[in-house]
């Protein structure tokens, strides 16, 4: 029992260390600019909402509401598409006895190793050919080619007992219906995990909205936040306040889905 106490104490210490920088972001966003500069304590001496007021009051210059809506729209659309096409592909590979399923899966996984920068210019040229630049499609579609998701869901679908589907087949159930009524409901946790990771990835993506979008009313939060800083100048107060706001939706999503997410990884077949 003493031993367990000790472990909990150690975890607590580690957790505090990890939490401090986060607290620094949130608490500092309630400080005035002068107080930020002369750091003396973690807690603000004079709590102020002025940074948030500045952030939200000047809509033309800082359209943070538009950025947030855009970020949300892009991230959720990407997530939705990934969930659909990845689960379909993973199902096809895992349950349809395809001859080359292992090879195809290996090829998909290998593409995870390609450095993102290699693809930037070619992707730009391709999007330009499609006429997709400066539209939502440029941000939403390319990242949906998500091999990680196929890998994760593949492991999951592999574990579904054969008899379940055989019984369904006897009832005259089509493959698509088996997929929809058996495979998907059984893999909710994996889908939740994948959904969260894709959402977070898209929510925090900086490079592709920066390069593929031009119009300022289509930009996303990370790119918008970056305009508070120039190469030789940083507005700490605005950046930290906006950073706090940008973190909240992601945090909410995690807190709500975290039980499913842990299960998702636990059952994802990483065991063997």
């Amino acid at each position: 029992m003493k031993y367990r106490r000790f472990i909990e104490f150690m975890v607590l210490v580690l957790a505090i260390i990890f939490l401090l920088p986060m607290l620094l972001i949130v608490l500092t966003s309630f400080k005035s600019e002068a107080e930020i500069l002369n750091f003396s304590s973690l807690l603000p001496k004079n709590w102020t909402l002025s940074n948030y007021v500045r952030l939200f009051s000047n809509h033309e210059e800082i359209p943070i509401a538009v950025w947030t809506i855009n970020s949300f729209l892009y991230a959720s659309t990407t997530t939705l598409i990934v969930l659909i096409i990845d689960s379909l592909a993973a199902y096809g590979l895992a349950r349809m006895n395809l001859r080359f399923s292992k090879t195809i899966l290996a090829i998909f996984i290998a593409t995870m190793m390609v450095p993102a920068q290699v693809q930037l210019i070619p992707t730009y040229l391709i999007l330009n050919k499609f006429g997709w630049l400066d539209t939502m499609l440029a941000i939403v579609i390319p990242p949906t080619a998500n091999a990680f998701g196929i890998f994760l869901l593949y492991q999951f679908f592999k574990k579904i007992p054969k008899d379940l589907e055989e019984a369904a087949a006897l009832d005259g159930c089509s493959r698509l219906r088996m997929f929809w009524h058996i495979a998907l409901p059984l893999s909710k946790p994996a889908l939740a995990t994948l959904g969260l990771l894709v959402f977070l990835g898209s929510w925090n993506d900086f490079l592709s909205p920066l390069v593929f979008l031009d119009s300022s009313d289509r930009l996303t939060l990370p790119v918008g936040i970056a305009t508070f800083q120039s190469s030789y100048y940083s507005e700490y107060s605005l950046t930290l306040a906006a950073g706090t706001i940008a973190t909240v939706p992601a945090l909410l999503a995690f807190l709500i889905f975290q039980k499913s997410i842990i299960e998702g990884i636990a059952h994802s077949g990483l065991k063997d």
Binding site: L125, L133, V211, D214, S216
Partner: peptide
Amino acid sequence: VSMQRMDFNTFYSKVFVAGLGGRSP
């Protein structure tokens, strides 16, 4: 006129990539 601002480093990368696609401002 619609204006877009970026920081120094990203600005030049972006102008250059836009030039590649014939989409310079």
